[in-house]
């Protein structure tokens, strides 16, 4: 892996951009924007994968690039936009936690992610992808935070997808991709998962006349 040193800063920058996109997601208050930012983040992920393909000599990753572009950049955002367009009257995000506070929390999560990476994981000496790893943990945590703090079903889906982006980022860089069959399977699962969630979102909208998941609270105790 002698050609790594040149690539690492680039990958780091891309990762930082993904983190930035996540921060924008936390901030933004309109659903459509949220979906667009997600698509952009996925695009960054695709570029990361592309660079990793060539610099890390893991050529099977090229398939991942196509998959990510096809699914995460195009297909899933389209599905989400479709749902937003047809189903939602209020196009706001409807947060439990205000955007400004959310940004503070998200920053805290980033610090937590770095703390985890530095003091708990304690990677091998000479590991170059520490930044990417920390970023992916941060993405996972922020995505999770989005799910916790936003009421709409769609925002929960986006949060989940952000978490997945985080996992993919670390898989791309740290391990230069999982074995081929696993990668394919995971992508397939993610796609099917989103489709199924889409189906349920439609059903929920039909039955509850709302996409607000905080209203799904009849099953208690």
């Amino acid at each position: 892996m002698e050609n790594l040193t040149g690539v690492v800063p680039t990958l780091d920058k891309l990762a930082t951009c993904m983190l930035g996109a996540a921060m924008i997601m936390v901030m933004c208050s309109r659903l459509v924007t949220l979906v667009y930012v997600y698509a952009f983040q996925s695009l960054l992920l695709a570029i990361t994968a592309l660079i990793a393909t060539f610099s890390l000599n893991s050529h099977h990753l090229i398939w991942m690039v196509f998959l990510i572009v096809a699914l995460k950049v195009v297909a899933i955002p389209l599905v989400l936009l479709e749902i937003t367009a047809t189903l939602t009257i209020k196009k706001e995000v409807e947060p439990y936690v205000e955007p400004r506070v959310s940004v503070l929390v998200a920053s805290g999560l980033v610090i937590l992610a770095y703390y985890t990476e530095r003091y708990i994981l304690q990677l091998h000496k000479g590991e170059v992808f520490t930044h990417c790893l920390a970023t992916s943990i941060a993405l996972i945590l922020i995505g999770f935070f989005l799910m916790i703090s936003r009421k709409k079903a769609i925002t929960q889906m986006v949060g989940l997808l952000t978490m997945e982006n985080g996992v993919f980022l670390s898989a791309m860089t740290l391990t230069s991709g999982m074995p081929m069959i696993v990668e394919l399977g995971i992508s397939f699962d993610v796609l099917v998962g989103i489709l199924i969630m889409g189906v349920f979102v439609f059903r929920i909208r039909e039955t509850f006349a709302s996409l607000d998941t905080s209203k799904l609270n009849s099953l208690r105790g």
Binding site: F144, M147, I148, S149, L216, N217
Partner: peptide, 14 residues
Amino acid sequence: LQPGSIHLYLLYIF
């Protein structure tokens, strides 16, 4: 502890 809120449940996992 279990009021039916999915957000709270997610918070537990977190």
